[in-house]
Design a binder for these strands. Structure first.
Length: 238
DNA sequence: AACTTCCTCAACCGCCCCGAT
DNA sequence: CATCGGGGCGGTTGAGGAAGT
């Protein structure tokens, strides 16, 4: 028993959107705003799944979208963000105004991957392709093994997996960073690292006493409104 | 010109998270 | 606490255009 589908598939159009469908969707959202996607198609007179409408709007029809080629700066920013965040396209898109997660994902897969490979960089790890993989085992000295034998009454393996049940509860605490003094004033951590000074995401001049907790083992949270990459009100999962 | 292969990217699918009940 | 439903996300697909033969 799976979940019921998000809409009645038998009576919905699929595939490329027509100009008329686009116009209907735009007109409806202009009049009523983005609301309940599930009920939107019916209300707008569209034979489409709500998800399809949402995707079409977000990825193609939204007025604030930037069309056209990615700049060199955008390329480099995507690479940096990907090295930090991995395939979290929506988070990456959040730092590129006018770009969508889908667009960035496509661009990554078609252009940047190749670009990195041509530089000799593995796009998945951001390490040199011929660089040996990170060590996954650690050795114990004879003395350490002796201690463990004593405790466990059984001989340990020669090598053990490095942190097999590792709970990487990383704590990233921007407040420890010293604010950077510039000609125009003091920059907060987010500004100085992400270049978002004087945007709505900038916290300069606000209370900086915030912490972010990222639990690599499947959940994440940050306490208080500020954010690691300069996104206010961010909630994200790793 | 005709055909094949490659590439791009819009769109879909299925899963997960989270708020409401 | 458990369940349900909506929204959102990342992975994948496939149509259509470009490039190569």
């Amino acid at each position: 028993m799976g979940r019921s589908p998000c809409c009645e598939k038998a009576h919905t159009n699929k595939g490329a959107w027509t100009k008329e469908e686009d116009d209907r969707l735009i007109a409806y959202i202009r009049a009523h705003g983005e609301g309940c996607w599930r009920s939107l198609p019916k209300a707008a007179g569209l034979l489409r799944c709500g998800k399809s409408c949402r995707l079409r709007w977000i990825n193609y029809l939204r007025p604030d979208l930037k069309r056209g080629n990615f700049t060199e700066d955008e390329d480099e920013l995507i690479i940096k963000l990907h090295s930090l965040l991995g395939n979290k396209w929506s988070l990456i898109a959040g730092r590129l105004p006018g770009r969508t997660d889908n667009e960035i994902k496509n661009y990554w897969n078609t252009h940047i991957r190749r670009k990195l490979l041509s530089r000799g960089i593995d796009p998945a790890t951001h390490r040199a392709v011929n660089e040996p993989p990170e060590a996954k085992t650690i050795s114990f000295s004879p003395k350490e093994e002796a201690v463990m034998r004593e405790r466990e009454c059984s001989p340990p393996p020669v090598k053990r997996e490095k942190c097999p049940d590792l709970n990487l509860e990383l704590r990233i605490s921007p407040p420890y960073q010293q604010n950077i003094q510039t000609e125009s004033g003091t920059l907060c951590f987010a500004c100085s690292t992400m270049g978002i000074h004087k945007t709505k995401d900038c916290s300069c001049g606000t209370d900086n006493n915030n912490n972010i907790n990222i639990n690599i083992n499947g959940s994440s949270s940050y306490n208080s409104g500020y954010d690691f990459l300069g996104l206010k009100g961010w909630s994200f999962r790793l």
